[in-house]
């Protein structure tokens, strides 16, 4: 291996922080995850130069997927400009040097972008706890057995408890879905508003959990069903307002406290979507023309 070839090839070797052997391991896990949608594939998670809980799983999956031609977008709670998104984007700018607009790979924490994803895109989720049954059944051996034998009654016990206590299914994020009628999956802590977007999505959706060392995936056009009861069907929820900046009626909203006299505004949590609409001339209640 004395001749590493021409420049692009040399650059592509050990591209984006991880070494080739590690990427190979992660890619194998990703392929297995795509072959068995919703199944949690164990993988040898590496230490990353950031703390657990900051997206180490997502970063590894992203690094394993990135090639020099890619354009990476990183969002945190829907926003492109919050701490986590900025630091991860900088990390890849330094280690990979890819442009970050018009993304082919999107790493996200807790949201699916409002703009519909398209064929050829990869959406990478950061997952804190991949096991949907974890808080009901603490034993890993037992939860794996339950997945194996499709024993998912316990998941409904959780929803039952919600209704018994709150009169409705109060789970509002990390809402469990059943993938292609087989595995029950935790879609990472996205709001249940985003759950319908998981199903039949043309993009590849990859989920990486660094501390828990699990990768799972939804290939394009996978069907997912949010669990519910016949007499308490699944409903999405959002703040009953329009965006105060761009006037969008059906995007997911953040509530922002603006003063100490109970002043507040509701703005799109997807900042890129909001900016785009304002640039297109849409103005909300408190917005100014961009």
């Amino acid at each position: 291996m004395s001749d590493l070839g021409s420049r692009p090839c040399a650059d592509a070797y050990n591209f984006a922080y991880l070494d080739e052997q590690t990427k190979r391991r992660i890619r194998r896990a990703i392929l297995k995850g795509i072959a068995v949608p919703g199944y949690q594939v164990p993988f040898a998670s590496r230490e990353m130069p950031m703390p657990y809980g900051w997206g180490t799983g997502g970063v590894q999956v992203t690094a394993a997927c990135l090639v020099p031609e890619d354009r990476l977008k990183v969002i945190d709670q829907g926003a492109d400009d919050t701490t986590n998104a900025v630091s991860i984007r900088r990390f890849f700018q330094r280690t990979a040097g890819v442009a970050t607009t018009e993304a082919t790979v999107i790493q996200t924490r807790h949201r699916i972008p409002e703009t519909p994803l398209t064929d050829g895109q990869i959406l990478v989720y950061q997952v804190p706890i991949p096991e949907p049954l974890r808080f009901l059944e603490p034993r890993e051996t037992e939860t794996r057995k339950m997945h194996e034998l499709e024993e998912y009654g316990l998941m409904h016990v959780k929803l039952y408890e919600d209704i018994a206590r709150h009169g409705q299914i109060a789970t509002s994020y990390a809402y469990p879905v059943k993938v292609e009628g087989r595995y029950v999956m935790d879609p990472s802590p996205i709001p249940k508003f985003d759950n319908p977007k998981l199903s039949g999505n043309p993009a590849i959706q990859l989920f990486g959990a660094g501390r828990e060392q699990r990768i799972y995936a939804l290939p394009p056009w996978t069907e997912t069903v949010s669990l519910d009861f016949d007499d308490h069907p699944f409903r999405t929820s959002k703040a009953p307002h329009d965006c105060d900046l761009c006037g969008a009626p059906n995007s997911y909203l953040d509530e922002v406290i603006t003063d100490d006299a109970s002043g507040r505004m509701f703005v799109c949590s997807d900042t890129d979507f909001c900016t785009g609409r304002r640039a297109g001339g849409h103005i909300g209640r408190l917005g100014e023309a961009a």
Binding site: E151, L154, I163, D230, D231
Partner: peptide
């Protein structure tokens, strides 16, 4: 889990889906 959830668990495990 509440008493009702405890009793209902087996029903849900065999496919009951009506709260």
């Amino acid at each position: 889990v509440s008493a009702g959830g405890n009793v209902g668990e087996r029903l849900m495990a065999v496919g009951a889906r009506h709260y």
